[in-house]
Design a protein around this nucleic acid. Structure first.
Length: 833
DNA sequence: GATTGTGAGGTTTTT
DNA sequence: CCTCACAATC
């Protein structure tokens, strides 16, 4: 993870402090709304060194020093609900950590009674580290973790009160999908009308909004089918002692509401609850937070509605926007000073977000230097783009910027490949965050399934996964019969397997034995194998168990048997998995816990690849989503084209709705605000994506940035493409004022060339209009909007339909004209129909 | 029962 | 472009 330079910068100011702010704990919460505390700044207030709790490294006094006024306010306000709007780069994490430190060191709140919740492990880790720096050992007892990890922890301890087995396993999305597939089959629902993905999506949505099957709104036959599937899916999970991600939250909420002694204990547990990225919470998560803080109402939520980018995942930005009405006496603090970025970058970000249709009013500002202009680079295609990103990285390095302080962002992972190739060819070290996940590889999933099955034999998904892996002669027919036998007996497959010896199951139809002798024998062997491993699992260390599993199951042997390069890679992956099990063991012991397989598995299922970024000297490639919460000196924001960003799916039809567009806009805002001093945005006129070529114009978000902040450029290739391209209408591409500068790192730039200018357009004849560049317009209300599907009229080709919109320095399209085919035409030669 | 091939479908972002 | 599901074949 890149170092938080802002923090470093500020800590220099803050640490000498023996100054402290008068605790404002007792102050009544004024209803004045925003930042209105008149608390003097730390530097103006003198106190003797504050008493320091044992084990706390003298930070109590410094806790509030070095914070600006609203920050200090948020840290010091400790009695009741608190809502912090934290603009990008405004020192949000800092406020949370200082707040926790203040609670422990000054307010003497026992660390184990503080809960700080984040969304990503990455954020949780960073918070832990910072707390450790401030509080030392006391930090260990603060509950810091993601929603999911926190819930898992609570459920392991107390879940039995609401019927959650303490050895539950967590099903990831592919596990979930296979459960759902089986459910849908059992319900005999048509796979085309009810794709598992879709049904699962609907079920998740219900769960995210806290609705059980019986609470669903049923408006159609399909809803009814989904309701059935939802029920059955939950039954299947319950039978397998498995939880999906939503269940982790929902069942913890159940626990809280259960009126059991365990519930009482959990509800009493935390006297302070803090949440980071509150704008990303869904209804269930919010309900859980409310429950966990219900005894004291000391709920502190920190977030930024402008950075709400997970609506698709159930996040409800109304949680943060409506917090004040849920907690009318909440103190509201707005952190509006940005410490991260240049004025130029902040202004650009504001230009983008300003057009969002709904926002909590706030003014982000900075006292940082103006900085360099943003470079907007037009490229011909994704390869050209990648080549110039590489060139830009070289330039940045030449000006002394560390590789780990450079990032390349893209909207979707699919864009990473070309960039990756270019970086590799240029010998630039890089790391890709996210994407194809290690833990999704087949061999890893197989190995983990064995381990999970040993912890929780009821987990049918795992059983079905490994039953014939490595191949042991148990075929589809046998598996199906076994599974249906188990389900008719109402027990997990593992149990049925164990009972095989004692019974002679017969087919109901024919009365013949259900299993052939050979099949039965093989099932018996598997049963013995698993039983032996299970016995061993209680005595062996996790990595030893792993070794035994891949040895005794024949998994390793099967891979070694044929030494293809794929199998070699698989063996390496398994070795890597073993390594991470060992690492886990070491860490667990360091924490004074004894390592267990269950502990390891939990870590795995709640961890994403995004989490382990290291600080080595490498350029970071990631999606914009992955970038949230991070910052880099230099940021390349690629693929800034209409259709890519804002991203539109494949469905060729209509555009996106306002809400989607707003979310894309916020995403763009997040992307831009990651940059500290340099932002280079790139767009390509043509892009190969998902196997087809897409032509598009520059993103509307670029035109929302005040033009004076941007320096427009084109790569030679892009210029060549537009200058050399001949059009059927014979239009000349020759135009004046095309900048000719090489692409270099902004800091080493010469004089800025003026942006390319479209040639003056002739006045349209009376009664005619020219279709023009109004397709940058969000609202579609002014001007003529030219987009896919628009009907156009050309003087020679007649009526046509727009297939692609492109930016060739001026608006142009690929349009289909019956009798002519697809033609590339400048928009100014077209009339709208 | 296993292996291989073909086709179709879907393609965002993540705990 | 990729994955997955299913069919045909050994």
């Amino acid at each position: 993870m890149p170092p938080n330079v802002m923090a470093q910068r500020e800590l220099q100011l803050s640490l000498p402090g023996s100054a402290a702010v008068t605790p404002t704990t007792a102050a009544p919460a004024p209803a004045t709304g925003t930042t209105g505390m008149a608390t003097p700044m730390a530097t103006e207030e003198r106190e003797g060194p504050a008493e320091v709790a044992a084990g706390v490294r003298g930070v109590a006094a410094g806790v509030v020093a070095g914070l600006n006024e609203p920050q200090a306010d948020a840290v010091a306000y400790t009695s009741g609900p608190l809502l912090v709007f934290a603009g990008a780069g405004s020192g949000k994490t800092r406020v949370i950590t200082y707040r926790v430190a203040n609670l422990v060191a000054r307010e003497r709140v026992p660390p184990y009674r503080i809960l700080a919740v984040t969304f990503t492990n990455k954020a949780a880790q960073e918070m832990s580290h910072r707390l450790r720096d401030m509080l030392g050992d006391a930090a260990r007892d603060v509950w810091v973790g993601t929603f999911h990890a926190t819930c898992a922890k609570l459920l392991r301890r107390h879940g039995t009160a609401v019927g959650v087995a303490s050895n539950f396993v967590i099903y990831d999305s592919s596990d979930q999908k296979s459960v759902m597939t089986r459910v849908l089959r059992e319900l005999e629902l048509d796979e085309r009308r009810y794709p598992p993905r879709m049904v699962l999506g609907r079920v998740h949505k219900e769960k995210q909004e806290g609705r059980r099957p019986e609470q669903m709104n049923i408006d159609s036959y399909m809803d009814e089918a989904i309701q059935k599937a939802y029920r059955k899916y939950q039954e299947a999970l319950q039978a397998a002692a498995a939880l999906d991600f939503e269940d982790l939250i929902l069942r913890t909420l159940d626990l809280c509401e259960s009126k059991t002694p365990e519930a009482a204990a959990v509800l009493r547990k935390f006297s302070y609850v803090l949440v980071d990225e509150f704008q990303d919470t869904n209804a269930t998560q919010y309900a859980l937070l409310r429950a966990l803080s219900s005894q004291t109402n000391n709920l502190c939520v920190v977030g930024d509605d402008d950075q709400s980018i997970y609506r698709w995942r159930g996040a409800d930005v109304r949680n943060i926007r409506g917090f004040r009405s849920d907690y009318p006496n909440a103190r509201v603090v707005k952190l509006e000073q940005n410490y991260r970025s240049t004025q130029t970058i902040v202004a650009a970000a504001l230009g983008i977000i300003a057009r969002s249709s709904t926002r909590e009013p706030k003014e982000l500002w900075t006292s940082n230097a103006e900085g360099d202009p943003i470079i907007s680079l037009g490229t011909s295609d994704e390869r050209d783009e990648a080549a110039h990103v590489v060139a830009g990285i070289h330039d940045a390095r030449a000006s002394g910027i560390s590789m780990s302080d450079i990032a390349v962002f893209y909207r979707v992972h699919a864009q990473s490949r070309v960039l990756e190739e270019a970086l590799r060819a240029a010998n630039l070290p890089y790391q890709i965050v996210g994407g194809t996940k290690f833990y999704e590889r087949a061999e890893i999933k197989d190995a983990l399934s064995y381990l999970r099955l040993l912890v929780n034999p009821a987990s049918d998904v795992d059983m079905l996964r490994i039953i014939n892996s490595p191949p042991r002669g148990i075929g589809q027919t046998t598996v199906e019969r076994l599974a249906s036998l188990a389900s008719s007996r109402g027990e997990p497959i593992f149990e049925t397997l164990g009972a095989m010896d004692a019974m002679e199951p017969q087919s109901q139809a024919s009365g013949k034995p259900l299993f052939q002798a050979s099949a039965k024998k093989r099932l018996g062997q598997l049963q013995v194998l698993l039983r032996n491993l299970k016995e061993a699992s209680s005595t062996l260390l996790p990595h030893e168990l792993f070794d035994r599993v891949i040895a005794q199951t024949g998994y390793r042997a099967a891979l070694e048997a044929d030494d293809s390069s794929e199998n070699e890679a698989r063996l390496e992956n398994l070795a890597e998995l073993r390594g991470s099990i060992e690492d886990y063991g070491v860490e667990a012991e360091a924490r004074g816990e004894s390592p267990t397989i269950q502990g390891f598995l939990e870590r795995v299922s709640l961890q994403s690849d995004t989490d382990d970024m290291n600080e080595t000297e490498r350029v970071t490639l990631m999606t914009v989503h992955g970038a949230k919460g991070l910052e880099f000196q230099v940021v390349f924001l690629t693929g800034m084209e209409e259709d890519m960003f804002p991203y539109r799916g494949m469905n060729d039809s209509q555009g996106m709705d306002r809400e989607q567009l707003d979310e894309e806009r916020r995403l763009a805002y997040v992307a831009v605000t990651r940059a500290r001093s340099k932002l280079i945005v790139t767009h390509a006129s043509a892009r190969q994506i998902f196997g087809t070529t897409r032509w598009s114009s520059a993103s509307r978000f670029l035109s929302d940035i005040p033009p004076e902040l941007i320096e427009e450029r084109m790569t030679p290739q892009a210029r060549g493409a537009s200058a050399g391209g001949r059009y059927i209408d014979g239009s000349s591409r020759a135009r004046g004022n095309i900048p000719t500068g090489r692409f270099e790192h902004p800091q080493s730039l010469g004089p800025v060339s003026p942006p390319p200018r479209a040639p003056a357009r002739p006045t349209p004849p009376p009664g005619e209009r020219y279709v023009d560049d109004a397709f940058f317009d969000d609202s579609g209300e002014e001007g003529e909007v030219l987009r896919r599907g628009s009907k156009v009229l050309h003087v020679r080709f007649g009526e046509g339909e727009v297939r692609k919109v492109l930016d060739l320095g001026e608006p142009a399209v690929v349009a289909y004209f019956p009798g002519w085919g697809e033609m590339k035409v400048l928009a100014r030669f077209l009339k709208a129909r």
